[in-house]
Amino acid sequence: MIALVAMFAIYNVIVYTQGTSNSTPKMSEKALKGEQLYQENNCTACHQFYGLGGYLGPDLTNIISNKYKGPTYVNAFLNSGIKSMPQFNFTEEEKDALVQFLTEVDQTGYYPIKDAEKEANGWVRIKYKNQ
């Protein structure tokens, strides 16, 4: 039993450090403010990052780098109250923070990955940004 607990503890520490390490820079203050707004308004009830989240709205992982969308488009969308999206009343500053948050999320990777490398053992090699 003690051995099992010890192994689990070591596994956790490795996951928290090396296992989830990545080369994206720390989030800026502004982005963190945006993330807080994202949470307080529970955007995740409808939206996804990396395919995780709610299903009523589109995934937002790469919306900023999407050549048809991008920051101006997002900014205009936020208070639009379109379809099921609630009628938010964000200030300019808040909209900026949300856009900054989405921009920094976009820098962390790709989703969906259309051209992932598939291997014979069922494994899929994903693509990384910043490498």
Partner: peptide, 15 residues
């Protein structure tokens, strides 16, 4: 430590 790194935070959340 977790919050500042989106991928770390997100992964541990789902863990």
């Amino acid at each position: 430590y977790f919050r500042e790194n989106f991928i770390k935070d997100f992964t541990i959340q789902w863990k």
